[in-house]
Design a protein around this nucleic acid. Structure first.
Lengths: 200, 200
DNA sequence: CAGCACTGCGTACGGGTGTACACATCGGTG
DNA sequence: CACCGATGTGTACACCCGTACGCAGTGCTG
């Protein structure tokens, strides 16, 4: 029994991974110190030791989930190409994401949405949107980028919450509408009448 | 003790109301047969009798919450005016809604988002979006209406999840972009030119 | 080599949960 | 009025939860 567990720096990490699996399988409802301990194959006391509260564990889990997607986003070659059709690329990316294992999408969204009721998660959720916005801002202005993220969130939610299918072409069209407008009105002054798109 | 409770048709209704209060106060996590029974001041057995499962109760609660907001939407005079700036009206409406008691907004969103993990709630969530879309479709085409809803959802979420403030002018601008007819013609199937923001 | 502070673990406790089931009560029927 | 099935209620049970706390193993210090 004299395991060198004290010097197991991956212990904490493994608990977080286990938490992600548990939430993916049974939802946040199914997350408890016990279930995650069983999943990670560590004693109960270990989970309470590393993460005093479940909130703390959720924060770590959400952050980890974010890292994965953020990396995926940054490494996307299509996003990097400066002459690509941004709307089409984003629509495609979203399609690939939601088209993959629904379990994973559910998992990430569930954690993200949990911030609604858990203030401790909100900074992490904010980090997340800021990351995506920062990536997109290279291809457009920050204000537009923020709206793109909002729209993508909304589209995903509609697909997930209503059992509806994700329509890539439709997403592309709407993202393009957001992108089309030269932002001539963000300043807080009086707004001008809606300007016609210039046509590409 | 010979209360005529058998003939209390509001009993069920009152339980639903109590459930809404409980969720508003303590979140879905805090919802149990016992808490709702206490809140509604009915015996424990009564809640299990009227709603065999908590899911069933949640469905009723979400539906009730939807009714309230749907009515508010339909009765909005600003929405009815055919010559109003739709983007501005929606942005204002959203501002009023999110600016009000955060508790109520949280409540409704939490129930709505719960559909992510509870398939039984999904039809009700779909009803909800369809209702809003139907209302908006009177002022634009259904496809655009759907995107407006998605964007509004996304904007609300960003405000709620990241502690950010809601920026009405910004919302107006982005909603207007969705409403603007795109320069490049929509691909097969979805082409209808009827509305164009007049901007006055 | 002896001692010690500290990190990490196992267990036990009090409390809250969903649910099954036996019981009271009521409206209708002969 | 006597009965009876349906409707609604109270209680008891088995389970799972978070947390507190005493104890073992470890690396450092002298």
């Amino acid at each position: 029994m004299a395991r060198a567990r004290r010097h197991d720096p991956e212990r904490r990490e493994r608990i977080v991974d286990a938490a992600l699996r548990v939430v993916g399988r049974a939802g946040i409802t199914g997350l408890s110190h016990r279930t995650v301990a069983a999943e990670a194959d560590v004693p109960l006391g270990s989970t309470t030791y590393h993460f005093a509260s479940l909130d703390e564990l959720l924060v770590a889990a959400l952050r980890k989930a974010n890292e994965g997607f953020g990396r995926l986003l940054r490494e996307s070659p299509a996003l990097a190409a400066p002459d690509a059709d941004l709307a089409a690329v984003l629509a495609r990316l979203l399609g690939e994401w939601t088209g993959g294992a629904r379990a994973r999408v559910e998992l990430e969204y569930e954690l993200y949405l949990a911030a609604l009721r858990r203030p401790s998660l909100r900074p992490v959720a904010a980090e997340w949107t800021d990351t995506v916005i920062a990536v997109l801002a290279h291809r457009t202005d920050p204000v537009t980028a923020r709206a793109l993220v909002a729209l993508m969130d909304g589209l995903c939610l509609q697909a997930l919450l209503t059992n509806g299918a994700y329509d890539e072409e439709y997403a592309r069209e709407m993202l393009a509408r957001i992108l089309n407008e030269p932002p001539n009105s963000p300043p807080p002054g009086l707004s001008e009448p809606p300007t016609r798109p210039t046509g590409t």
